[in-house]
Simulated scan of single mutants.
Amino acid sequence: MTTLPDHYEIVRERNGYGSADGAVGPVPAAERRRFVAVDDEGVFDRADRRRTLVATGVGMTGPPHLGTVGQFLTAVALQEAGLDVQFVLADLEPYHGGAPLDRVRRLAERYRTFALDLGFDPDRGRLRTQEGAREVMHTAQLLAPYYDPDRWTEDAGDDSGDTDPPPTEWERAVREAYEAGEDDRRSGTAAVARPGPSSEAADIHSAVLHGADFLHPLYAGDYERLVLQFGVDEHHLVGMARRFRDAAAVEGGVAGLYTRMIPGFDGTPKMAKSIPGAGVSLATSADEIRERIAGDPGGDPARSPVFQAMCLASRYDAERLGRLERACEAGDETWDRARSEYAEFVVGLAERWRATEE
Rank of each mutant, 00 (worst) to 15 (best):
R14F: 09
R14D: 13
R14P: 03
R14T: 13
N15W: 01
G16E: 13
Y17A: 04
Y17L: 07
Y17W: 14
Y17I: 01
G18Q: 10
S19P: 05
S19G: 14
S19K: 08
A20T: 04
D21S: 12
A23N: 07
A23P: 00
A23V: 01
V24T: 09
G25V: 07
G25E: 04
V27N: 01
P28V: 12
P28Y: 14
A29S: 13
A30M: 09
R32C: 06
R33C: 08
R33Q: 13
R34A: 06
R34D: 06
A37K: 03
A37I: 07
E41L: 11
G42M: 06
V43F: 02
V43N: 03
V43S: 03
D45A: 11
D45L: 05
A47W: 05
A47L: 10
A47G: 13
D48R: 15
D48H: 15
R49E: 09
R51H: 14
T52F: 05
T52D: 07
L53E: 09
L53H: 03
V54W: 08
A55Y: 09
T56R: 00
T56L: 02
G57T: 09
G57K: 03
G59P: 02
G59C: 08
G59L: 13
G59S: 15
G62W: 12
G62P: 00
P63G: 08
P64K: 09
H65N: 07
L66A: 05
L66I: 07
L66E: 06
G67M: 03
G67E: 04
G67L: 02
V69N: 02
G70I: 06
Q71L: 15
Q71H: 12
Q71W: 11
V76E: 10
A77D: 13
A77Q: 10
L78A: 05
Q79P: 09
Q79L: 10
